[in-house]
Amino acid sequence: MKYGNELKVGIAVVLSIIVFIVGVRYFQDLPIFSGTLELYTTFENADGLIVGNPVQINGVRVGRVNEVRLRPETRNVLVRFQVDRDLQIPEGSTTRVSGLSALSSVSVVINLADARRSAVSAGDTLTSDQTDVLGNLVDQAPRLVHRADSLFGSATTTLNTAEQLLARPESDLRQTLVAIGTTARTVDQLLRTEQQRLASTLESVDTLATSLADFSTTNQDSLSLAVQRLNRSLTQLERNLTALEQTTTTLDAILQKVNQGEGTLGLLVNDPGLYHRLDSTTTQLNRLLVDFQQNPKRYLKDLKLVEVF
């Protein structure tokens, strides 16, 4: 063939160009034949997002991050990413950063909005809704650590004190423990020596319970009658007590009125006027009677009946 070498070279060059382009797109995780859509989003905190991180929807990789740029004028992070053009992401879909850069790769996650809304077009910006759970946790961490630290500290102190106390033979704690030990031993010995008697006592208790049960079974009818009567009496008593209580209440009210000087009785009890008047009346009557004794004629002048005698 006349152009054999040229043909070989041409095939090699063309194939390598195709492999190069397809390979680059493959490793960029871009669809090799269909197009892509470039979108923007902004984050307060990019959480270690870098160029090349995946963009995911429902955990499936659909694109990659192309640019992460801090914008000093707005103090947020502009993220440019590209996704598959065929995805039809509805307007109003939101983004968030997912993952921990320390443990694995960070990714941008798109939460799709209602599918009936029209799809976004190239260059649109998706809003982000970032809930910084981990950040909050990290903020809390120093305080938690501090508290745990002080807790451990005091625990250590307590244990040290206890250790010191236990080490001293004259300490209360040690003596208490020794006493508890002695008591436990004594109880143990007692239980062992009195085992026989305890057993017999328990047996007697058992017998008693059995005979009691027998008794209650045989005299069940009379017992129940007695209980019924008792019950009736108690009911009566209760009714009487209620009546008594009502009476007491009424009496209490009356006495209260008396005390306050209301009514006749109250006036009688509280108003000294009557007494004073009675007193003066008695005094005058006394004087009158004395006068009557001394000078009966002054009073009996007009009594004809007396003249008869």
């Binding site: 190069f20 390979g23 680059v24 490793f27 960029q28 995780d29 160029v51 090349g52 991180n53 995946p54 990659r64 790769s105």
Partner: peptide, 15 residues
Amino acid sequence: GAREFFQPFDPVFGL
């Protein structure tokens, strides 16, 4: 893993 840290400039640099 290869995709995670892939930079399009890498193969260009290789070329």
